[in-house]
């Protein structure tokens, strides 16, 4: 047996190791260009049937806030919803929702059916505000500090693990990123 017959296997081993590492890296976690930037300026009317809308000024009122982008047509949102409800029940976290590209009635029904964890909601009917936030998939969740500086962004379904490891510490003011200007 010559060493040459082992070459294909060796190449494949290298490839397989890279693929295995690749699985742990998750390229979808592209760091958001908005982290360390001030939240974009916007002003949204509330979702149908709610009283308080959402604007960028609400995010600069001094309390760290969890901004959750959701929609009634988004199935993964349903998956993370109980977690948000639990979080809201603790009363210690301010959660606001941006309702992306939704029919007003559908959004209203959705909140009625599954519960409303949001203290404020903004109806982003045409998706323009979401674009400003750099949202490219629903759900996405942001942590914004009391001055309106974006601290963290999570793409796709929230898990308890992400909540404990990444989100709650930042809401408590740990691992702060500074916004310039």
């Amino acid at each position: 047996m010559t060493w040459r017959v082992l070459v294909p296997l060796a190449v494949f081993v290298v490839l397989a190791v890279a693929l295995a590492v690749g699985l742990t890296l998750r390229p979808r976690e592209i760091p958001s260009a908005l982290i360390g930037k001030m939240a974009p300026t916007f002003d949204l009317a509330p979702v149908k049937g709610r009283a308080t809308g959402l604007s960028s000024d609400d995010l600069r009122a001094g309390t760290p806030t969890l901004v959750n982008v959701f929609a009634s047509w988004c199935i993964p949102c349903r998956e993370e919803h109980p977690l948000l409800m639990d979080l809201a029940r603790t009363g210690r976290v301010l959660i606001v929702g941006i309702n992306q590209r939704d029919e007003p009635e559908a959004a209203e029904r959705w909140l009625a059916a599954f519960g409303d964890p949001y203290s404020r909601t903004g109806a982003d009917r045409d998706g323009r505000v979401s674009i400003e936030w750099g949202v490219y998939g629903v759900p996405e969740t942001f942590v914004v500090d009391g001055r309106g500086c974006i601290q963290y962004k999570h793409i796709s379904v929230l898990t308890r693990d992400v909540l404990e490891r990444e989100i709650l510490p930042r809401l408590r003011g740990e691992r702060q990123v500074r916004c310039d200007g």
Partner: peptide, 21 residues
């Protein structure tokens, strides 16, 4: 899928390395 890939491709190439000669 990666595990399957390793078994299928790795197995085939190992067999190749031992038998090709």
């Amino acid at each position: 899928i990666l595990a399957f890939l390793v078994i299928a491709i790795g197995g085939a190439l190992t067999l190749y390395a031992s038998r090709a000669a």
